[in-house]
Computed example of a mutant assay.
Amino acid sequence: MNRDTTELWRSLGEDPLLATQVLQVLIEKIKTSTSQEGSVTSETETDRHLAAAEPLSAIYAIFQVVSALQSSKAVQELLPELFPVLLQQVSRTLGQKMPLPVISSPSLGQRDRQHTEGNPCR
């Protein structure tokens, strides 16, 4: 990423409401890229590099937006959705299988959290 792109992402992170919306779009971009990873029909090296670079670019954008946020509340609200997506992408980049189940929706994550909070053995 160049300086102008970095500055653009940081400026989007200065407004907490806008930053929350941008982060949600970036999270969905990573999820979509991850789910389409196995469905790439072209086998050229260039296509594989572009497919791998897209989620990494989104992660860099997330870093810039989060770094510019003046309020951590926006990040805290998105953390249950953001953390598994980032962990999954790091695992995929390292060629490892993700040790946690994929949380596909916020309601599923909240339901799982409610079950584990009442039972300290989970």
Score class of each variant (00 low, 15 high):
residue 1 M to A: 13
residue 1 M to Q: 11
residue 2 N to Y: 04
residue 6 T to D: 14
residue 6 T to F: 08
residue 7 E to I: 04
residue 8 L to Y: 13
residue 10 R to I: 04
residue 10 R to T: 02
residue 10 R to E: 15
residue 11 S to Y: 08
residue 12 L to P: 01
residue 12 L to D: 14
residue 12 L to M: 09
residue 14 E to K: 11
residue 16 P to S: 12
residue 17 L to K: 08
residue 17 L to P: 03
residue 18 L to G: 03
residue 18 L to D: 13
residue 19 A to P: 04
residue 19 A to K: 00
residue 19 A to W: 00
residue 20 T to Q: 14
residue 20 T to W: 02
residue 20 T to N: 01
residue 21 Q to W: 09
residue 21 Q to L: 13
residue 22 V to F: 10
residue 22 V to D: 09
residue 23 L to I: 08
residue 24 Q to E: 13
residue 25 V to G: 09
residue 27 I to S: 06
residue 28 E to H: 10
residue 28 E to S: 10
residue 28 E to M: 07
residue 33 S to Y: 01
residue 34 T to N: 08
residue 35 S to Q: 11
residue 35 S to T: 15
residue 36 Q to T: 09
residue 36 Q to N: 10
residue 37 E to F: 07
residue 37 E to K: 12
residue 38 G to W: 00
residue 38 G to D: 15
residue 39 S to A: 14
residue 39 S to T: 08
residue 40 V to H: 08
residue 40 V to K: 00
residue 42 S to W: 00
residue 42 S to M: 04
residue 43 E to F: 13
residue 44 T to G: 11
residue 44 T to I: 03
residue 46 T to L: 12
residue 46 T to M: 10
residue 46 T to Q: 15
residue 49 H to Y: 12
residue 49 H to Q: 15
residue 49 H to R: 12
residue 50 L to E: 15
residue 50 L to N: 14
residue 50 L to A: 07
residue 50 L to V: 06
residue 51 A to L: 14
residue 54 E to G: 02
residue 54 E to K: 05
residue 55 P to Q: 11
residue 56 L to T: 05
residue 58 A to M: 06
residue 59 I to N: 02
residue 59 I to T: 09
residue 59 I to S: 03
residue 60 Y to I: 11
residue 60 Y to F: 07
residue 61 A to V: 02
residue 61 A to H: 05
residue 61 A to P: 02
residue 62 I to T: 10
residue 62 I to A: 04
residue 63 F to K: 13
residue 63 F to D: 14
residue 63 F to Q: 15
residue 64 Q to R: 05
residue 64 Q to G: 07
residue 64 Q to L: 13
residue 66 V to A: 15
residue 67 S to W: 03
residue 68 A to T: 07
residue 68 A to K: 03
residue 68 A to W: 03
residue 68 A to Q: 01
residue 69 L to S: 14
residue 69 L to F: 08
residue 70 Q to D: 10
residue 70 Q to C: 02
residue 72 S to T: 06
residue 73 K to Y: 13
residue 74 A to G: 01
residue 75 V to L: 15
residue 75 V to W: 05
residue 75 V to H: 05
residue 75 V to M: 12
residue 75 V to E: 07
residue 76 Q to I: 11
residue 76 Q to P: 00
